[in-house]
Structure formats: structure tokens, C-alpha cells
């Protein structure tokens, strides 16, 4: 199986980290992975996105223009990437911040109130983990345990006390779709 996805949001929403966790988790499971960020001035306050491929075969093009999966954390990201999703693909969007419904009818759509759930858990900044949980609930491309291993690797030791909170957020997201 090959999962090709674009994760997008505005700077600070943690979409780059979300992508890196998927890539890292895939790597620890012996899969082939690539992570390609958008870069340059658009990163300064605008939208940020990364393209991630997780596959059991070597990754060809790391640049994906027709993704099977899009995770949109804000409206500009959904506006930008909704049309690019392959028919039959998946759109996960952050319904806390995106008020319109997706236009596409030929794809699967999952609305995740990521910021609301994150706030319930007491930390607005883990909305990305809620969305990631929902994505993995729908497409279990890597084990949740591998994501936790990746998080442990990504977070500096002095932030490791946040690991249980992140795990809760992932879990809430997964339960939303499962």
C-alpha cells in the first residue's frame, strides 16, 4: 500500500510536525517514507503544508499533486487542496475553524472539531494531534505506538511531560471516527 498525503494549515498549527511523525513512525516500521515541506516566504504567517508518502515500496516522486489524502487545518488549506484529492480519496478537515462544507461528493469526508476537543483537553496546541488521531482512525497506515515513539523522539526531554496529553488527543481523534 502507498499513502500519499498533503497536510496543510497555517504556521503554528503543527502540520509540519504531524507529517514528520507519520514519516518517522513509518520509518521505524521499516516502511519507505518521504516528507517534503513547503518552504519560503509563504511560511511566514501564511499557510504551510507538507507532503508525506508512506509506502511499502520505494518512494518515487516525493512531490504529490494528486494526493489520496488531505488534512486541512484551516480554510485556506481546504480551498487550496480540496480539488486535488483523487476520486475516492479522503479529506480530513478541522471543523472548528472551517465553517463551510466540502464541495466534493466523490471523496470521503471527515469533519474533526480539532480545536474544540483540544480545548476540552486543556491545550489548544494539540489540535494537530486530534486531527492526526482521526486520520489514523480512518487510515491506520502506521501503528499508534509508532506515532508515540516518534513523538518521544520529536519532543525535547523537557517537554516529555506533555506525552500523555498528546496521547489523549490522538485517542480522542481516533475515537471520533472509529
Amino acid at each position: 500500500m502507498t499513502f500519499e498525503m498533503i497536510l496543510a494549515g497555517f504556521g503554528g498549527q503543527g502540520v509540519m510536525l504531524m507529517g514528520q511523525l507519520l514519516a518517522y513512525a513509518g520509518m521505524t516500521e521499516g516502511k519507505h517514507v518521504s516528507w517534503l515541506p513547503s518552504y519560503g516566504p509563504e511560511m511566514r504567517g501564511g499557510t504551510a503544508n507538507c507532503t508525506v508518502v508512506v509506502s511499502d515500496r520505494p518512494v518515487g516522486s516525493p512531490l504529490i499533486t494528486r494526493p489520496g489524502i488531505v488534512v486541512a487545518m484551516n480554510l485556506p488549506s481546504m480551498d487550496k487542496f480540496e480539488d486535488s484529492i483523487k476520486p475516492g480519496g479522503l479529506l480530513v478537515y478541522n471543523s472548528s475553524l472551517i465553517t463551510r462544507s466540502p464541495k466534493r461528493t466523490d471523496i470521503e469526508v471527515v469533519a474533526v472539531p480539532a480545536n474544540e476537543i483540544a480545548n476540552e483537553l486543556g491545550n489548544d496546541r494539540i489540535a494537530n494531534m486530534v486531527a492526526l488521531g482521526a486520520l489514523l482512525g480512518k487510515k491506520p497506515m502506521v501503528e499508534m505506538q509508532s506515532i508515540l515513539t516518534a513523538l518521544r523522539h520529536a519532543l525535547p526531554p523537557h517537554r516529555h511531560h506533555l506525552l500523555p496529553l498528546n496521547e489523549q488527543a490522538l485517542d480522542r481523534g481516533r475515537k471520533l471516527v472509529g
Binding site: 514528520q20 520509518m27 517514507v33 518521504s34 516528507w35 517534503l36 515541506p37 516525493p62 512531490l63
Partner: peptide, 10 residues
């Protein structure tokens, strides 16, 4: 190229 510089792979 910019892509090879910016992307991550194992």
C-alpha cells in the same frame, strides 16, 4: 535541487 535539500527521508 530545492526539493532534495528540504525533504526528509530515512
Amino acid at each position: 535541487d530545492g526539493m532534495l535539500g528540504q525533504m526528509m527521508e530515512p
